[in-house]
Structure formats: C-alpha cells, structure tokens
Amino acid sequence: MTRTIHLSLDINGKQHELDVEPRVTLLDALRESLALTGTKKGCDQGQCGACTCHVDGKRVLSCLTLAAQVEGRQITTIEGIAAEGGDLHPVQAAFIENDAFQCGYCTPGQIMSAVACIREGHAGSEEEIREYMSGNLCRCGAYNSIVAAVREAAEMAATGVAAKDKAEVA
C-alpha cells in the first residue's frame, strides 16, 4: 500500500496543491507532479547542484529536500525569478550576454545559485565567486563566463544601475 499525503506548496508566489507520497523529493514533485521542469536533476545525490532552488530565500538542493518538509516555506524556482512582465532577472541577462552556458542543463541551478551568491554577499571577487559557485558543476566548462556573469550582475546590484533590478538581486 502506498501512503500519500496532501501538500500545499508555495512556489513562485502561487499555491500548488498535490497529493504525493511522503518520500517524494521537492525536485521530483516539481518535475513530475507540477510540470515545473526548469529545476534539473543531474545526480539526485547532492553532488552537482543542478537542482538548486530557493527555500525562504536561501539556496538549497531540492534533490535532498522532501516536498513535505517545505510546506509553509516560500519556494522559488528558475521559473519564478524573471519580472512579472517577463523581463529577465539581471543574472539571467548576464548569463546570456556572457555566454555562461552551453548545453543549458546546469544553467537553472547556476542561476539560482548565483542570485543567492550575490544576495549573500559572496560575490566580492572572482576568487570568492569561484568558491561560492563551486556547488554547481558545469561539464560544458562555462566557468569563466559564469564568473564574469555573476560579477557583472553583482556590480549592477551594488551600483544600482537599475533600481528595479537592484531590488530583485539584493
């Protein structure tokens, strides 16, 4: 017999209702039950960072988080960071401009991690960005461009180039 529980999850500012087994991870709930497939499964073991999303504003790995654990928390995924009107988040724009990806599969995790990295104040130098972005593996090898993109977005946030963007980044 399979036990399911009812969950109401706050994802990208919207409530999502679902009935899942308690063992279902947040990652699988997003991808298999909620059609939010922007969050990627790379290893399912906490070793690659592709599944990174935010819970209450902090970056976490959704593959090692039970969906049941995050009921009542604010979950943000890659689908939820662009502005309502569709304008890209400065980090997304910087990733495109700097060609900070190739295959694109680690990219949502990189971007979610980068947004948090800047917010945490860990984007002060290239060395710091490298270390604090090391939880997100990129096999295509876009690391140089990822560092450049994070740096650019962080500088934008710091100097308030766009007030609207600053509010989102910082």
Partner: peptide, 21 residues
C-alpha cells in the same frame, strides 16, 4: 551573436527529453 536559445535556457523554458508532458 548571443545564443539564440539563451532565453529558453536561462528561464527553465528549454525542455529536455525527460521533461516532455
């Protein structure tokens, strides 16, 4: 020229094989 598929890949809109509904 920046990647044509850049927006899809940075917004989660690029759909990979196991993500087909």
């Amino acid at each position: 020229f920046s990647r044509l598929d850049g927006k899809l890949k940075t917004t989660g809109g690029a759909t990979y094989a196991l993500e087909q509904p």
